[in-house]
């Protein structure tokens, strides 16, 4: 099964880089040639380009929710994004729309997409480090991703 682990975000923008940090650590622990570990700071259509041709995709990203606590970890299926999928966006398209577009165009879409999201505190100040609240949960997210890969 062709699998992609994709870290999303900006590695020099504090907690926005958490997805990339997790992906890098996961990459260091893997030797399976069927699993590709990648990172990107692009969204929308580029996300679609990255995931096409894989059977299983695990995405790791930062998230900001109204009542979330920094460092909180969420595990979601792509269906959880259906709330926003039909809204047009001022700049790009979101994950759910990108997935729908892929299906519409008959691209080789993954059967399984899992998203791990970490509640971010700071995503506006440039820094290579995450905030302590986010930094401390990275090992746990790495463990969750590895477990997901073994299932």
């Amino acid at each position: 099964m062709k699998t992609l682990v994709l870290g999303l975000g900006n590695p020099i923008l504090s907690d926005d880089g958490v997805g990339i940090r997790v992906a890098q650590e996961v990459g260091e622990k893997l030797k399976d040639p069927q699993i590709t570990v990648a990172e990107t700071s692009e969204a929308g259509l580029s996300l679609l380009d990255s995931i096409v041709g894989n059977d299983k995709v695990i995405i790791i990203d930062a998230i900001q929710t109204e009542k979330g606590q920094a460092g909180q970890i969420y595990r979601m299926g792509a269906e959880d994004f259906s709330l926003t999928k039909h809204l047009s966006s001022p700049h790009q398209i979101n994950l759910a729309t990108a997935l729908e577009l892929g299906k519409m165009l008959n691209l080789a879409m993954p059967q399984e997409i899992t998203v791990f999201a970490v509640e971010a505190k700071d995503i506006t100040n440039f820094s290579e480090k995450c905030t302590p609240e986010v930094e401390q949960v990275i090992p746990e997210v790495v463990k969750m991703v590895l477990k997901e890969l073994n299932e």
């Binding site: 975000g9 926005d16 996300l47 926003t84 994950l95």
Partner: peptide, 11 residues
């Protein structure tokens, strides 16, 4: 540069 979920820039 910010790509925190939901992966689009709201307006």
């Amino acid at each position: 540069a910010t790509h925190a979920l939901p992966g689009q820039l709201p307006l």
